[in-house]
Write a protein that binds this DNA or RNA. Structure first.
Lengths: 204, 204, 204, 204
DNA sequence: TTATAAACGAGACGGTACGTCCTGTCTTTTA
DNA sequence: TAAAAGACAGGACGTACCGTCTCGTTTATAA
């Protein structure tokens, strides 16, 4: 969590009038509101600018496309990643997975991920942005919990941790995808429980 | 076409010029081609009509929206659901899951599912259509294999079959969603193997 | 005045929905109103469409540029060319020149001619349109009067008729151009009188 | 203003950074170039600033509108008014009229006059500026020649000098306006000749 | 046979949003 | 305090599609 920013950021001498930070905030806020109101497909730059009380070029100056604007908006909106350490890895895991799944299946960020993957090919770099700034940190946090559990002897030393995570996250995500309905905490916890149980079971 | 109508066709008394079947085919074909070329978001009814060599109203006469047209097109495109019975449930399972996953993560039908879920709220009925005509039959086929395996004593009698399927399908789907890349047969089979193994393991 | 339209106009078989004549009229009317309200430079296609109660593309479908729209509008607006024959050529000439000058220096058509000439180079073909459909017929009518006067012996046989017209029309036009104010009938008549007088004078 | 101004321009005590005279020149030069390249309508302050290598506000600081900038530019560009005195008024008149007409019908100043008159109503004061600084001095110079000719007995004492000038200048201007093409020296001289001839003829 | 009904292609309709350009103003840093 | 640089809100540009609506034409069935 320590900032990896190189220490010698020499403050580039920006010329001209600096960008108005309030405009930036207003645009992102308007984007999030409209995402909730009309969804991704129904969102237009025009409406964003109007709701933000901003000229349209001011939006385009910062974000070259709807997709990039939406990514920034949902990332800014995403609840910060915090991990509780209760002492019990299974509890921590259930807590965190449940939170992530609820976020993804009920907040705009999930929609953004779908839209991105759906348009894939053209937007690969954008998808990587989402992966890098959202998915990877969260997966890493889960991975750390699993590693601790292995170190503590609570999970077998040869467990495929990546596969375990794909199962824990994939199953509830798949439910959301095929039913269209958000997945609640209880269901997410039950899945984590089940995967944990089988992981701790000796192979037949 | 003049005579010997098969007995079970009640022959609705349509008046006027009948719809041109070739137009229908041309539209669906054009839709699929454009889906591959420009993706779902970039697809326009105008372009579909132009590529099909058809007037725009001819498209609207049959499909009231882009979404419905795309669903019909991808359903028609989807490979038929066939199940091999090799005698070994695990083999059949791996074969079928691999085929389904490869389809969903490489063909337009996956994109359509994402687009539908992403736009959810407005298109619930359409999503149900996709679920009913595509997802459910495939899930049912997998379920049948699992039930047979339980009946044959190869899987424990109290196994949660729905959860098992969510794990088998969800893990590879999740990989596709987060990497944006199709999942190949080998990876899909490995996941099925792993889930099967833990399902057959005695609880700790 | 007899129509020079070739008799065998075979009515080209127009396909598709025919253009709405009312839209056309509304656009031209809106253009004329706006020309009077905000002038040529201040006129925007957007405002024309709005005032005409018409979509913007409907304007562009018919007129590719503001210039062409304005030309059509002012031509349609121009008072029809009618010639009175009083028996006295000088009277007829004064009457007609005065009418033409008043039109050009007070109605939008004058502004259009200025704008066209001012932008010249790019709009040559448009300028020719204005010349052909507006200026030339009016000059021809004046020329006919002069010819009659020559034939009747009221003007010298060797009079340079083109120069005479340039003087009669040019002098009041120049006044308008350099003062910016419309030229009234009286001034126009006085100029015609003066030119006529000198034309009938024996060369020194 | 406080004290006795010395006769030789005492350098007013301007504070702060003085205006860059080169910026002013560059802007005017860029304006003239662009007028020739893209015409009055196609000229934008933005392009002027860019070509002059100057910030946009630097233009606005000096000229509040495109119109005023253009007027200054074309006035600065206009050839200085010089009168040759050959001894023969008709020769001098032809020489000067030809020069003025060629200027007006081939250089940007003519376009500026058209644009100004075309936009009239809004820009009356600007038009007066052009009249005062360009048209009036030139007309006065011509008037002086005519007066000398009258005084010398070469033209009748009761000749309407204003009308004579309107004829001499108006006829070629009208030709330019209706043909869109510059009027050459020869044509201008011929018109002066003709008007002069009729002016010297005894009324019928 | 001849209507009649519905489909066909073509294309115009009123609209919305696009992404760009320019306007004239307002900061900020540099000189 | 003016310079350049550049962001600001705003507005018009000309284009692409939307989904609907005539058109004139074509094609089957029903009268």
């Amino acid at each position: 969590m320590t900032s990896a920013r190189p220490p010698a950021a020499p403050a580039p001498p920006r010329r001209g009038r600096p960008r108005d930070e309030r405009a930036e905030q207003a645009i992102l806020a308007a984007t999030v509101e409209l995402l909730n109101d009309v969804g991704f497909a129904g969102l237009s730059i025009e409406a964003v600018a109007a709701r933000a009380g901003v000229g349209r070029p001011t939006v385009y100056r910062r974000w070259p496309s709807k997709m990039e604007l939406v990514i920034d908006a949902v990332l800014r909106l995403a609840p910060p990643l915090t991990v509780d350490h209760s002492g019990d890895p299974l509890t921590d895991l259930k807590e965190l997975v449940a939170r992530l799944i609820v976020d993804m299946t009920s907040a705009p960020i999930g929609r953004a991920i779908l839209a991105l993957t759906g348009d894939a090919g053209t937007h690969t770099d954008l998808a990587q942005r989402l992966t890098k700034d959202y998915l990877t940190p969260r997966r890493d946090a889960l991975l750390a919990i699993l590693r601790d559990a292995v170190a503590a002897g609570e999970l077998p030393r040869d467990l495929d941790l990546d596969l375990t995570l794909d199962l824990m996250l994939g199953a509830p995500t798949y439910r959301w995808l095929t039913t269209g309905r958000p997945v609640d905490q209880k269901a997410a916890r039950a899945i984590v429980d089940a995967v944990w149980r089988t992981a701790t079971a000796p192979p037949a």
